[in-house]
Simulated scan of single mutants.
Amino acid sequence: MLWYHIVFLAVIQGLTEFLPISSSAHLILPAQLLHWPDQGLAFDVAVHVGTLMAILGYFRKDIFAIVVAWFVSLKTRQSTPESRLAWWIVLATLPACAAGLLFDDFISTHLRSLEVIAYTTIGFGVLLWLSDKYGTSNKTERDFGIKSVLCIGFAQALALIPGTSRSGITMTAARFLGFGREAAAKFSFLLSIPLILAAGGLKTVELASSNLAVDWGSILAGVILSAISAYCCIYLFLKWLNTIGFFPFFIYRLVLGFILLFIVYIL
Results as ranks from 00 to 15, higher is better:
266 I>L: 15
50 G>T: 09
3 W>Q: 10
241 L>M: 05
197 L>M: 14
12 I>F: 04
136 T>V: 13
69 A>S: 08
142 R>V: 14
103 F>I: 00
95 P>W: 04
45 V>S: 06
227 A>Q: 08
210 S>V: 06
72 V>H: 12
79 S>R: 12
97 C>A: 15
244 I>T: 05
8 F>C: 12
73 S>P: 00
156 Q>N: 08
4 Y>I: 15
86 A>M: 10
150 L>F: 09
129 W>L: 10
155 A>Y: 03
210 S>K: 00
48 H>D: 07
57 G>Q: 12
267 L>Y: 14
75 K>L: 06
221 A>M: 15
181 R>G: 02
77 R>G: 09
9 L>S: 07
113 S>A: 05
172 T>W: 02
108 S>F: 10
166 R>L: 05
93 T>N: 08
195 L>Y: 11
54 A>D: 07
188 S>N: 09
204 T>K: 03
150 L>I: 09
228 I>F: 12
68 V>W: 02
17 E>I: 04
73 S>W: 06
3 W>H: 12
127 L>S: 09
192 S>Y: 06
72 V>T: 14
62 D>V: 06
7 V>Q: 10
181 R>D: 06
82 E>P: 00
98 A>G: 07
30 P>T: 10
4 Y>Q: 15
13 Q>I: 05
159 A>R: 00
16 T>M: 02
249 F>W: 07
219 I>D: 04
95 P>E: 07
90 V>S: 05
214 V>D: 05
184 A>T: 05
183 A>T: 03
256 L>R: 02
263 I>E: 10
41 L>T: 06
238 L>T: 05
117 I>N: 09
170 T>V: 02
55 I>A: 03
203 K>W: 11
87 W>E: 06
237 F>A: 04
97 C>H: 07
151 C>K: 11
61 K>P: 00
14 G>W: 07
175 R>G: 01
252 Y>A: 07
211 N>Q: 13
113 S>D: 03
136 T>Q: 15
156 Q>G: 13
168 G>R: 00
94 L>Q: 05
208 A>H: 11
251 I>R: 01
263 I>R: 14
132 D>T: 09
1 M>P: 13
28 I>F: 10
156 Q>D: 11
258 F>W: 14
45 V>A: 07
242 N>S: 12
198 A>N: 08
17 E>G: 00
98 A>Q: 06
45 V>Q: 04
6 I>C: 07
112 R>G: 10
